[in-house]
Design a protein around this nucleic acid. Sequence first.
DNA 1: CCAAAAGTGTTTACATTACACCCATGC
DNA 2: GCATGGGTGTAATGTAAACACTTTTGG
Lengths: 230, 230
Amino acid sequence: MAKHTHPDRLLLAVDCIIIGFLNGQLNLLVTRRDQEPRLGEWSLMGGLVVKGESIDAAAARVTHELTGLENVYLEQFQAFGDVGRTEEERTVSLAYYALVNQESATSQLSEHHDARWVSIRDVPALVFDHNKMVEAALVRLRYRATHEPVAFALLPKKFTLTQLQSLYEAIFDRPIDPGNFRRRLRKMDYLERQNEKDVTTSRKGSWYYTYNAEVYEEMKAAGEEFLLKP
Amino acid sequence: MAKHTHPDRLLLAVDCIIIGFLNGQLNLLVTRRDQEPRLGEWSLMGGLVVKGESIDAAAARVTHELTGLENVYLEQFQAFGDVGRTEEERTVSLAYYALVNQESATSQLSEHHDARWVSIRDVPALVFDHNKMVEAALVRLRYRATHEPVAFALLPKKFTLTQLQSLYEAIFDRPIDPGNFRRRLRKMDYLERQNEKDVTTSRKGSWYYTYNAEVYEEMKAAGEEFLLKP
DNA sequence: CCAAAAGTGTTTACATTACACCCATGC
DNA sequence: GCATGGGTGTAATGTAAACACTTTTGG
């Protein structure tokens, strides 16, 4: 691949679609651009891939810079490389989406950036092709959430099945039958019921559950599939 | 994204997993590298993204250079950007897979490259992380083929349902029941039976079909889903 | 008429849907 | 005791898998 005479070099960036979940809705973390062009406009959090840094590491760094969080769920889903996309310097951008626990992320929001959570259903105009990136991220998230248990990254460690249902309803943007939803969950041994109830939302209280990734890995290794259709 | 002081620049390439189908099996088009490092070793066809060229255009150009074909089905599916992946210069590569009609492609194979079709079940050791790319391409192809009618890109314009079944068996690497397969196809109005039979494979002869993309787009617009589970 | 591939039909098992119903408890 | 969200059960419908069956025609 490497031409040894005058190779064409360009800028390579990552942009992160950072997604949280609060009060029954999915939210997107956006910032104001801190440089030209488009200084001050709403934008995804991004950054250049620097020397000696893998692209996944760049995405983790960018997410960390804004949220303060480590070990965030990140998936690279598309490269955006149309010619005039960033207006000035030719930049190709690798888009990643991140699933974070919104409470933790909010409490650690870096004050160096002017950041804000917006509803995923009401994303403002973003710079460049960032709105397209958000759309593509949601498509990929919906696919991933049906085939793998990634949604738990958006919830606190302990959560109720009602919260989980509400999350899936937000991801797929449609109501889900509680009976059918729960029946499917009942088969998932990696959901572990705690001896503790959330009593803030109802008289009866609802059991807290935790997600056990090890158990899931075992089931996966045994060939069993995760599937939660919308 | 653009730092105006000393931005980090690196090489950006595309690598194409060019897939064909012949005699009941999927095949991969590989070439011998024509430059250092790893001169002469088996490799995917790749090339640098050049100035003023979109990444999709780069993939189309690279595919065209080797196969002579235009308007090839191409899907970008993953960026590979680990630090030492290309050994010398830091290169990030965008992987695309291409679905081509193997007969047409073979007849137009560029003589400037030392190219060869190999069975997808028996891919030789390729340079760098190219074997990983092939694996990832197959995963994506399998997903795409169940949800969208892309498989037709691998077949001639006219094909029999037996050929189509054989193609799906190759993609999913498992036998398919002819009865059930045909029943599902019967509902797909974008498969149009021609007044012509292929009489080379059986006494009875089997009808030729064509794929009508316009009809599919209409059905898609009407909210109907394509789904061909493996 | 028979072999061999093309193509059809039918039964069965299973999963999904829709919805009615019961449970627990603070007020 | 009743309103409220939590949680369960079940009959009906739809789909997919397995496989037996019919069709066609060159030799």
